[in-house]
Nucleic acid binder design. Structure first.
Lengths: 336, 336
DNA sequence: TTCCCCCGTCGAAGCGCTTCGACGTCACCC
DNA sequence: GGGTGACGTCGAAGCGCTTCGACGGGGGAA
């Protein structure tokens, strides 16, 4: 293994000079820097991560806790993860993968052993048991999602309440008076997963405000249930003309089911969704949707951490405003 | 931060004794061990990961490279990842997440900086550019998947060729004479992704051997294309009665499409698949399938690495034999 | 010209842990 | 009863890096 002293000798400088040339923490003459860089290249030097972490008390590793629970749409989780990893790399950090299963003990372990410098937590519940721990930890953290009480914590997410409202308001503007929310699986609400709850809030508030008749239906995320869901909706609300879907796997099958029941989309029924743009655009009838900006959320989560690690201030709450994209699935309501 | 010297003082022993009590590398008296453990508990001691890595030249971290490319079914990737993380934790290791995008440089970086002790690589191509690198690295690695030439490397995967064969043979045994393979997306084959290729090999070989008429159809993994795929299959092979699906997202929509075209499953058409058991069992008509044993593969990949890290021998090639489970989607062929 | 300060570099002191060799004690065997 | 190990513990020497204080030399200000 080639170490910093080898580089130093080869470049005719002291080890500390090599270190400063690498970190830029002290000025180094152009000439010296060049010689050091040449030596590094010729010897194929790579600083030892452990030694660096020990001496600098920075591991340059971030922990990412991913949810594994049922009802969570896996591809979306992966999009967050990829965005986090990619952004972390841009900031010269790596990402350690923790599963929800490891729980609080896992968080405490990687933080207390100084394995990681900071943490990102996903799948936040309204009353998340990890909150006290995150507050107590001596390392910065960011939550993707908003718990009920988040003072002293840094959170970022799409403004799901506003997203729910945006969908209803879009439908209301088109003249729809009876709307339904096809939500996430029941267990997601039982766990009080923050984002799902907030969609319901926004949906209901906007419908009430606009005087629309509305109903909320938690639904399994299995495509096979789409037909049954569609039938139930129409049975319970025969005048239904607007649907908001917050359930990725069900989106396409649900549209199919409605059409098989004789309702054209958007002719007889307008459909909007809250999901990644790619998902919405890929459906046979491209769906008007509020984008789930996974890439942006992941990126900004990392950037918030970087600010905190640099000792700079970071906003506690970042709510990304919903952005609705009109596609082919919504249209003005038929004259009755 | 509480360190090993604090624990030592509190327990009335030397730091090295604490270390040995922790690692078990030298015998420690019952009495001393108890005192050390008590001190650790009382002080809330956690060994510093960096210091440990530096002194022992072991980071207790594994790198996992996950594929991000199109055509790869994300939930399956996640299942591998979860299994790897869980198993790694059982062996007191953590997992660093690398994206395919980081490429060879990423592998070299984490290995050369001693950030990780060993590597797991997924989404192996037949002629994977990373092979020379993995051979040259001074750290052990395991590939999930089999490249064309894998001497000197450790690989593990389901025996996809045998899986393809098993599906055809199952259909042949039921009397089917005309079969089709609904494969992964075209780009997967273009990249020569190892497992997809091998399924085709096995499928074709078994069909030829049994004298069955067969055809292979790479297919996009978008549910919306199911109807078109079904129509094409029936147009090209009107006598078709057996289908093998190696394309998770298309499985359920395809079954629906066939039924909409007037073919009952399994009455008129028998369907088998290669996919995780949960996926096969969740379809409306539960699908006879060869299981994709993601949990087992991930677990064994980690265990192979552990053996290698312990200096023990590990088999170079581990091919898991296919296990077919009969469900409701296959039946003897109708008398013509 | 003198003083001061900044630039660029060096040496040395750790960071917190593991590990090696050494040493005293005790039991056991011939 | 002395030799021989095994056991249990200690002290010290690093692991490879960062960082702090120091210092010589040169330029600008007075």
């Amino acid at each position: 293994m080639v170490k910093i002293t080898d580089v130093a000798r080869h470049a005719g400088v002291s080890p500390s000079t090599v270190s400063y040339a690498l970190s830029g923490k002290r000025p180094i003459s152009e000439e010296t820097r060049r010689r050091v860089e040449a030596a590094i290249r010729e010897l194929g030097y790579r600083p030892h991560a452990g030694a660096r972490a020990l001496a600098s008390s920075r591991s340059n590793v971030l922990a990412l806790v991913v949810p594994l629970r049922t009802g969570i749409h896996v591809p979306v989780v992966m999009q967050f993860a990829v965005s986090v990893v990619t952004t972390a790399r841009r900031h010269d950090h790596d990402v350690l993968l923790l599963t929800q299963e490891e729980g609080e003990e896992g968080l405490r372990r990687v933080a207390d052993t100084a394995l990681v410098d900071a943490l990102i937590v996903m799948d936040v519940q309204l009353h998340d048991p990890r909150l006290p721990l995150l507050r107590a930890l001596d390392r910065p953290s960011v939550m993707i999602g908003f718990p009920a009480a988040h003072e002293g914590l840094t959170c970022i997410d799409l403004d799901f309440k506003a997203a729910g409202e945006a969908c209803v308001e879009h439908l209301a503007r088109l003249g729809h008076r009876v709307v339904a929310l096809v939500g996430s699986p029941p267990e997601v609400y039982v766990r009080q997963t923050a984002f799902a709850q907030r969609v319901v809030e926004g949906f209901t508030a906007a419908a009430d405000r606009g005087g629309l008749a509305s109903s909320v239906h938690p639904c399994e995320a299995t495509p096979g249930t789409a037909r049954a869901v569609a039938e139930r909706l129409l049975r319970e609300q025969p005048a239904l003309t607007g649907v908001v879907v917050h359930n990725e796997p069900l989106l396409e099958p649900l549209v199919d089911a409605f059409e098989q029941l004789g309702l054209r989309v958007p002719g007889d029924l307008s459909v909007t969704a809250i999901c990644p743009d790619e998902t919405a655009a890929a459906v046979r009838v491209p769906i008007t949707s509020v984008a789930l900006p996974t890439a942006e959320v992941g990126e900004r989560a990392v950037e918030l951490l970087m600010r905190k690690l640099d000792g700079k201030s970071a906003p506690e709450a970042t709510l990304l405003p919903p952005r609705i994209t009109e596609r082919a699935s919504t249209a003005p309501r038929h004259a009755p």
